[in-house]
Simulated scan of single mutants.
Amino acid sequence: MATALSGRTALVTGGNSGIGRATAVALAARGATVVIAGRDAERGERAVRQIEQAGGSAYFVAVDLDGERSARELAATAERLAGPIDILVNSAGIFPFGPTEKMTGEQFEQVYALNVKVPYFLVAELAPRMAERGHGAIVNVTTMVAEFGLAGMGLYGSSKAAIGLLTRSWAAEFGPSGVRVNAVSPGPTRTEGTAVLGESLGNLAAAAPAGRAAAPEEIAAAIVFLAGDEASFVHGAVVPVDGGRTAV
């Protein structure tokens, strides 16, 4: 097992499926102890077993992330389980698509609670403690549709556009204390969550130079890079991993 991240502890939200799980597995493979946070206990325990069977170390925290309180409680629980958090990956998110007039107030609140409030207050809890120790890495997961307009994706895209701005603001705020904050902006990716999109996912992916959807592991590779020492001079970047869609 590679050990580039040995001795470090990572918290991955949404780590029981999709991009989050692929990221948790990859971080553990590089030696990090990983705390996986998610709603589905069965998937979470399965992810922990996968990591442990490969020789890694992981914990699962069953949590319904829905705003400030849940974020602060998760931060405290993760540190009780595994010690100080060195790496935070904000991967959990929801992505309802549809016409603006069809979105309800409840959907609006749910999207912003999970996609914006949870990362905000996890950073509020964990980044100052990272700064006190003089090191840390935070990687946020956004989306390519935060970078350009696409019909039916305004609610989701706007929530992730907020995360792009927060990434740059947090880099300015915490970077001088040794905490690097960056983001990855994925394109269409085949996960459990996007399976419901059916052919529309492939159609969306076909517009990019790569001409296909990504595997979760391809997005995770960029996240793990930004979390590690190889990216020591990267601050405030939003890295597109979208098959070239935002380049054309």
Rank of each mutant, 00 (worst) to 15 (best):
A24G: 12
G7A: 13
A28L: 09
R39P: 04
D40T: 01
N16L: 11
T23Q: 04
A37H: 05
L5M: 03
V12Y: 05
R39M: 03
R39Y: 09
A22E: 04
S6M: 10
T33S: 11
A29V: 04
A2M: 11
G14I: 03
T3K: 06
T23K: 12
R30T: 15
A24R: 11
I36F: 01
D40W: 00
T9D: 02
V12P: 14
N16R: 15
I19F: 15
T9W: 02
V12S: 12
G15L: 06
A24V: 10
D40K: 04
G14T: 06
G20S: 08
S17L: 07
L11E: 02
V25I: 15
M1L: 01
T13D: 09
A32V: 11
V34L: 04
G7E: 08
R8S: 09
A2S: 08
T3H: 10
T9N: 07
T3V: 11
V25M: 13
I19W: 13
G31T: 13
A41E: 02
L27T: 10
D40P: 02
S6K: 14
V34W: 06
V25L: 12
T23M: 10
T23F: 13
L5I: 03
A4V: 09
R39E: 01
A41F: 00
T33N: 02
L5V: 05
A10D: 12
A28G: 10
G20F: 07
T3E: 01
V35M: 03
G15H: 10
G14F: 06
G18C: 09
A41G: 00
A32C: 07
L11C: 04
A10V: 11
T23S: 15
G14M: 05
G20N: 10
G31E: 07
V34F: 14
A4Q: 00
G15E: 07
G14H: 04
R21D: 13
A28H: 13
G18T: 07
L11Y: 04
V12T: 07
A28M: 06
S6E: 13
L27A: 14
A4G: 00
R8P: 04
A2R: 13
V25A: 09
V12D: 05
A26M: 14
R30P: 15
V35L: 03
R21C: 09
R21H: 13
A4S: 07
R30Y: 08
S17T: 13
T9F: 08
A24I: 13
S6Y: 00
G14R: 01
A41K: 00
M1H: 02
A10T: 08
T3S: 12
G31C: 12
R30E: 15
R39I: 04
G7S: 12
S6D: 10
G38F: 05
R39A: 02
G7N: 12
N16A: 15
G18W: 05
T33L: 08
V35A: 02
G31S: 12
T33A: 11
G38Y: 02
A4M: 01
A4K: 00
T23H: 10
S6I: 02
A2G: 01
L5R: 01
N16F: 08
